[in-house]
Nucleic acid binder design. Structure first.
Length: 482
DNA sequence: CTAGGGTTAG
């Protein structure tokens, strides 16, 4: 067009920008942006908004912000684009700050804006803030949108309030695929397996066509319940719907079979894959190996990961832990040394609990919390009760070679226990204690928390890196399969 | 007379 001597106008620039953003063609986008500046279109709100979006999609958020700040006129699209840009990069704080500023400046936010900002709350498990924004949404009449609805379903689910997710789902009868998928994944995370299968049937009966994400959701549900046959059924069903299984579906199947102890079947799936197995596929196998203590196979899988030339810290930790779990501390140490030499950091285990507008975070053995003394006293006191009820600490989950006293100490103060104790001394008895953790809960803590729920009569909801555990009356919703 | 920019689910 330019070669033919035509000049782009205020309609053409946004389209060109959109294309650059979708392709992540940052440099090309920058040139078009320059041309818009030179030809005097930079003051146009459509052009400006599209430039903001283009830079945000190219992960050049600072350039996006520079353009945003320089816009003479901004509207709801410009604000939403900027907020959404921050959410896509995981800059949750900045997204929320901007949203607040938009409200402060009396700008009308709409369903686009709400959907983005609710997602932020979900990602950061900010239940209280999320609820407030949900309320605002109702007040402003944006609560019937499927986009807002799926963000809300996901928010409540991620924050451990599955009832809230169901309620939002029921209240929005006009559901699109994203909303069904959000509800499905919520069921999977909370181990409401029959409900997940029900939903899938309902989708079929209302002729909502599942997509590749839908199948990831149901496979995930099967994996969490150890339902191998059902998983195979859905995997086969993909063909009927004409959906080619991707890397993630294979990883899911390997995860399902591996967790269920069918490690040979898992290997068979990998061998039959028409595409090259990726790190996540081998990672799923490693997880199965760890659970079922098959160190030989774990080493084999780890070797394959090394061949891919990729290093992610989780992968090395899996290998190191596989060695340690069978008492081969020397090799575990060697694996850790590889981690250190390559500068890979193991993620610190953290647990957090939300109270009002605060998030209280704990690490294992942490004494930094102002209420530390009270928390540890609570754990001591509760520990005695638990032991009288039959709890015995299982120190095989301590993955370091230390004396048994030290092991006992290490395991008593894992981060989730500190967070739960904080909840016990802070929240009224009828309120469930919701704790989030970034790593997998260890077997001993899982047992201990069952005793805790029994000895205190409290409902404890713990999210680990993978799923939710709901402890009540000495039992866990995962049925001890996780 | 028409036309352009921003969202969800893993």
């Amino acid at each position: 067009m330019l070669d033919c001597g035509f000049r782009p106008d205020d309609h053409i620039y946004p389209s060109a920008m959109k294309a650059c953003g979708m392709l992540s063609w940052c440099e090309f986008g920058r040139s078009v942006h320059c041309l818009a500046l030179k030809t005097g279109f930079d003051g146009d709100v459509f052009v400006g908004s599209s430039v903001v979006d283009m830079y945000a999609k190219c992960e050049e958020i600072r350039d996006a912000r520079k353009v945003f700040d320089g816009m003479p006129v901004r509207n709801v699209v410009s604000w939403s684009g900027m907020i959404c840009g921050y959410t896509q990069l995981g800059e949750d704080d900045e997204a929320l700050r901007l949203f607040k500023q938009a409200l402060w400046e009396d700008l009308d936010v709409n369903d686009f804006t709400f959907s983005s900002v609710i997602r932020v709350c979900g990602n950061s498990t900010l239940l209280e803030l999320g609820k407030q924004i949900h309320g605002l949404c109702l007040k402003m009449g944006y609560d019937s949108s499927s986009f807002v609805g799926s963000s809300l379903v996901s928010l409540y689910s991620k924050c451990g309030v599955i009832e809230g997710a169901y309620q939002v789902f029921e209240e929005i009868p006009d559901r699109n695929l994203g909303m069904w998928n959000a509800m499905l994944i919520a069921c999977a995370q909370h181990a409401h397996i029959r409900k997940a299968f029900d939903l899938f049937r309902q989708m079929e009966s209302v002729r909502m066509k599942p997509n590749f994400i839908t199948f990831l959701c149901v496979l995930y549900a099967c994996s969490h319940a150890g339902l191998v046959e059902e998983g195979k059924h859905y995997f086969e069903l993909m063909k009927v719907y004409g959906i080619e299984p991707g890397e993630q579906h294979y990883a899911s199947m390997v995860d399902l079979l591996g967790r269920a102890g069918r490690l040979r079947d898992a290997i068979a799936i990998i061998n039959e894959m028409p595409i090259k197995p990726t790190e996540s596929v081998w990672g799923a196998l490693l997880t199965g190996c760890r659970i079922h203590k098959d160190t030989e196979l774990a080493v084999y899988a780890a070797d394959r990961v090394f061949e891919l030339g990729q290093v992610s810290s989780g992968m090395h930790v899996l290998l190191a832990n596989a060695y340690a779990a069978t008492g081969r501390y020397e090799e575990a140490g060697r694996a850790r040394k590889v981690l250190r030499d390559r500068g890979v950091k193991k993620e610190t285990g953290l647990s957090w609990v939300e109270q009002g507008n605060c998030v209280h975070t704990f690490a294992a053995g942490d004494r930094r919390h102002p209420k530390s003394d009270e928390i540890y006293r609570k754990l001591e006191e509760l520990g005695e009760k638990m032991e009288r009820a039959g709890y015995v600490a299982d120190t095989s989950f301590v993955l370091r070679e230390v004396g048994s006293d030290e092991k006992n100490q290490a395991i008593r103060y894992h981060s989730e226990r500190l967070a739960i104790a904080f909840g016990l001394i802070t929240f009224p008895p009828e309120r469930p204690i919701r704790v989030m953790k970034n790593l997998r809960v260890c077997g001993d803590c899982h047992t201990a928390i069952k005793f805790m729920s029994n000895c205190t009569g409290r409902v404890i909801i713990l999210r680990d890196n993978n799923r939710f555990h709901r402890f009540e009356d000495g039992k866990c919703s995962c049925g001890d399969y996780w």
